[in-house]
Nucleic acid binder design. Structure first.
Lengths: 210, 210
DNA sequence: AGCGTAATGGCACACCGTGCCATTGTCAAC
DNA sequence: GTTGACAATGGCACGGTGTGCCATTACGCT
């Protein structure tokens, strides 16, 4: 049988698998960081992780997948955080608060990953490939927050999810550029831009309707 | 020399290259459509297009690239259409108008491509991979429309671009689902959702500020 | 006609991803 | 503690991919 039917039939084995998965992940990121994403081959990762090439592929579909895993974890945490926001907050406020909670810790523990993505377009793409999947999760998160799900609001939830992912990307980018700035400040700046955009467009619509 | 230095030094040769590129594209889409994206190999495409495997790779980096090319063309046309909108329109209105102009014709001439993407996740991913690149172009298009580019508005232009790409994706999705509906109607629906979202969030912010 | 350049085709090669099976390890029941 | 069932691993082989290299062909120009 392949690794994990996603049925944690035995939680002990499941934990051991997570250890292996982590081992491989660490080995991969170390190598990416040192030699650049594009110059690392699967064999090297497997060797460094102490497993066979074949086993590597049982845990990750490719080295791109290793990069994607980081984004995936972030996305799942973000979706959960959105769900956990107080009901009084609007969707956008919830997104803002969730990003504030989740992004800074994530970046802190995966700073090397960000650097790797910085230096290799292929690595960035590997990360980006996760976005549509995450957007689905985030959309769900917004849906589960809304009282009644009308058909029109389905579209709005998807737009919100897209905005949330874009905002995340922009925050990371700014954070990389101005290394020193605190994350909450950056998040505020990005969401201020969103709100400002909302207002400006709204104004424009009102005046042009005359 | 590889194909095309991107310098159209001789427009005649350049045109012949475009013919070959088109030949390969047609062959690929035909095969994708008939056998499914995942079951087609590069060799088959090359054979059908009447070129060698090696030459295929000079025109497209992979079969995924062939799928991406369609999206790329759309994105470029869209960016141009945005630039061409009347200056009185707000950015969002310009985006809406541009999508109305560009999306319907594109879908009409590439309906088989949409079907291929429908049936294969890998094909969809190949298309999606183009989005960040296109978003850059579209961002530029919005920038070149705005009178003076302040630093804050840079963020807003990127948000706009992201919204525009998302809107496009949603329009296509709806169009596929309800085959009969005319594109302008779909676009109106999607942008109505965006505006409604803007308003709702704005209201929420105003009331919560008390 | 003949020269120069660009496109092509045909290797060869390293790498990737996967099916297959033999081996190893682990847990449970007896 | 031995045995039996089953999951995880490693090793092999194979088909597919993407690219460097070079010989050959086709084309444009004088």
């Amino acid at each position: 049988m392949a690794v994990q039917d996603a049925s944690p039939r035995n939680s002990l084995q499941a934990k051991k698998q997570e250890v292996v998965r982590g081992e491989i992940w660490n080995a991969a990121i170390d190598l990416f960081f040192e030699h650049g994403f594009d110059n690392v081959h699967v064999d090297q990762i497997a060797a460094k992780a102490g497993v066979s090439r074949r086993t590597f592929f049982r845990y990750y579909g490719s080295k791109e997948d290793v990069m994607g895993a980081t984004v995936k974890r972030y996305g799942e945490a973000l979706a959960q955080a959105i769900r956990d926001q107080k009901a009084e907050l609007s969707s956008l406020e919830a997104a803002k608060a969730a990003i504030k909670q989740v992004l800074a810790p994530t970046l802190h523990t995966t700073e090397r990953v960000v650097q790797v993505a910085e230096r290799s377009p292929a690595a960035r793409m590997a990360q980006f490939l996760q976005v549509p999947l995450l957007e689905r999760d985030v959309t769900w998160a917004f849906v589960s927050r809304s009282k009644r799900a009308t058909k029109e609001s389905a579209l709005e939830h998807r737009i919100l999810a897209s905005l949330t992912m874009t905002a995340t990307g922009m925050c990371v980018e700014i954070w990389v550029k101005d290394q020193k700035r605190p994350m909450p400040e950056i998040v505020d700046e990005v969401f201020a831009a969103i709100v400002h955009l909302f207002r400006a467009e709204d104004e424009k619509l009102k005046t042009s309707r005359r």
